[in-house]
Design a protein around this nucleic acid. Sequence first.
DNA 1: ACAACTGTTTTCAAGGTGCAAACGATTATG
DNA 2: CATAATCGTTTGCACCTTGAAAACAGTTGT
Lengths: 260, 260
Amino acid sequence: MSKPPRRSCDGRTVKAVQLSCDILDALRALDGAGVTEVANHVGVSKGAVHTHLATLKANELVVNHDGEYQLSLRFIDLGEYIRDQIGISNIVEEEIKKLAENSGEIAQFMVEEHGRGVYLAKAEGENAVQTLSYVGNRNPLHCTALGKAILAYTPEERVNEIVDRHGLPAKTSNTITERDKLFDELERVRERALAFDRGEIFKGLQCVAAPVLDHDGEVIGAVSVTGPRSRMQDDHHEQEIAEMVRHTSNVIEVNAAQVQ
Amino acid sequence: MSKPPRRSCDGRTVKAVQLSCDILDALRALDGAGVTEVANHVGVSKGAVHTHLATLKANELVVNHDGEYQLSLRFIDLGEYIRDQIGISNIVEEEIKKLAENSGEIAQFMVEEHGRGVYLAKAEGENAVQTLSYVGNRNPLHCTALGKAILAYTPEERVNEIVDRHGLPAKTSNTITERDKLFDELERVRERALAFDRGEIFKGLQCVAAPVLDHDGEVIGAVSVTGPRSRMQDDHHEQEIAEMVRHTSNVIEVNAAQVQ
DNA sequence: ACAACTGTTTTCAAGGTGCAAACGATTATG
DNA sequence: CATAATCGTTTGCACCTTGAAAACAGTTGT
C-alpha cells in the first residue's frame, strides 16, 4: 500500500480553521443562521459552533443580528481592497465597456483562480440580455467560452489538475463532461484563437471568447461577448462579434503591462 | 521591528482560528507576503504559519502567486454577496446621489457595525473634493459627523461599550478624546438632530450629518455631506447643506421599510 | 563553494478543542 | 399558569490537534 506521490497540496492542515471556513460557507449558503442550524449543516456539536462563531465575531467577520449570525460588512471592505489591489488597470474596464457598446451585448473579462473562472469586469450593451454573472462571481472553466479560452493556453498538466479537483459537472446537455472531449475542444480553440460556448452553461445563451496573453505567451485571462442564441446563431453576426472580441483582446494585450 | 498585533478576547475562543485571522490581517496589512514575513509580523513560528496558509489556500481564501501569499479574489465575491444581501434598498443610493447633486459636495451613508462606522453609499457632486473613504470602508465613530449622529441615538450603555472597545484615538488636534466631552457633544447633536465634524478626522474637511431613525426610533444609520473648510465654514452655506441633509434623512426614513 | 536566505517537513509535548451533558432563558402549548 | 420544547451558552473532561524548534530542501548571492 503506497501513498500516491501527490504534490504538496495535501500536507498538514489546521482542522479548527477548516471548521471555521465550513461555518463561514454555511452562513453564506443559509443566508445567515442560528447556532443550532449551522451545527446541523456542518455536522458538529452546538458547543463547537458557538466558540467558533464567538471567535469569528471577535474578528469582525460575522455579526450577530438579533439572534442570527451573518457574514459581516467587513467583507465589502475586503472585496474593495482586493479590487484596488489587483487594479484591473482601467484599460480592461474601458475596453470591456467599448466591446459591450460595439456589440450591443454583454462583454466580460475573466481570470482563473483556484481552477475556477472569476469575472473581473462586465459591461452591458443596449441589447444585452440578463445573465447571472457579476464581478467576483465564479464559474467552472470547462463550460464557458471564457474558461475554455483560458484552459486552451494553460499547460496540460495544470488543466489535468484542475479537472481532477473540480471534475466536469454538466450544467446543460451541451456541457463537455469527458476529459478527452475537453482536450479536443481546447485543440480547436487554439486553432482559431477563439472559444465558443453554445449553451454549455445555460441553454439559450451563446458566447464567443478570446484569450488574453502575456508578453511571454502566458494566459492572463480572456474576454468575451455573450448573447441569446437567436442572434448569435447567425454566422455572419457571429463572425463580426468574433472580430470585435479578438480586437479587444489585442488592445488589452498591448496595453496591459501586468494585469493581476 | 513590528510587534505582534494579536487580539485578546473574553469568553472561550478558538486559538487556531484567531491565528488564522491574524494571518489574514497580516496579508492585508502587508499587501501580500511570504511565510517568514507573515510569521515575523504575527509573532509565531514559520511552521505554524505555513500550515495555516495551506488551510486557507485549500479554502480558496488565499492564493500563492509565485511565492507570495495574497488574499484571493474570493473576497470580491463575498463582498458582492453581502452587498446583495443587505440590499441597500436602492432608495438609499438614489437619495445619496440626489444629495450629492444638490449640494455639489460628497454625500455618504453610514451604518454602525462592531462599534465602527461603515460607509455603505457614496456619491460625488460636481465640486466634490477627494476623500479616502469608499463603500465598505470603516472609520471610528467618534471623529466623524456620521458616527456622532449614530452614537447620539444609540443607548448610552452601548456607547460606553464601544468606547471601551475602541477608545477615542485622536486623528487631528480637533478630535474628541475624552468620554465626558463626547457625551456632551452627543447631547448637542440630539438638540438639533444634526452632527458636525470640524476637521476632527482630517484637517480641512468639514461635515454635516443627520441620523436616520427607525419607526421605533432606533438609529439605523446616518447621512452626510462633506466639503472643504473653505466652503463649509460659511454659516449660510452650512445652513443650506444642513437642510438638505435633514431632508434626505427624512426621505430615507419614510421609504426604508428596513435597511440592513 | 559557501553562506544566507527562503519554504517545507518532522518530532514531540503541552494544552487546546470538540463532544456530551447540564444550565438558563425564552417561547409554545395544553 | 404550568409544563414541555428549543434555543444559546457554559462546563468538565479525554483525546488529539497544534505550535515550537530543528532538521531538511531549494534558491540566491557573493
